[in-house]
């Protein structure tokens, strides 16, 4: 068994109003100095040894993210 983390983020050129809303709220809450916030998704998958990297890439690219609007990274954590 292994834990796999997939992070999905809006592409840099895609407007991210949710991230902007978070960024705009910070000064109101008294936190200065945060210049930009981008909001994405974080998935943790527990997979058995039969799941290879190629399969994980397919899951990330074909389902967990939409390549039109999002970039993703896949990494295995722990052991």
């Amino acid at each position: 068994m292994a834990r796999v983390v997939v992070d999905v983020m809006p592409k840099p050129e895609i407007l991210d109003p949710q991230g902007q809303a978070v960024a705009n709220a910070l000064p109101r809450l008294g936190f200065a100095g945060v210049v930009e916030v981008r909001q994405g998704k974080h998935f943790e998958l527990e997979v058995d040894d039969s799941v290879d990297d190629e399969t994980l890439a397919k899951i990330a690219e074909g389902f967990l993210s939409n390549p039109v609007i999002e970039d993703f990274t896949v990494r295995r954590v722990g052991a």
């Binding site: 895609i14 109003p17 039109v68 609007i69």
Partner: peptide, 10 residues
């Protein structure tokens, strides 16, 4: 083609 995203005004 394309995708639909959260409304700009949220």
């Amino acid at each position: 083609p394309g995708a639909l995203l959260r409304n700009a005004g949220l």
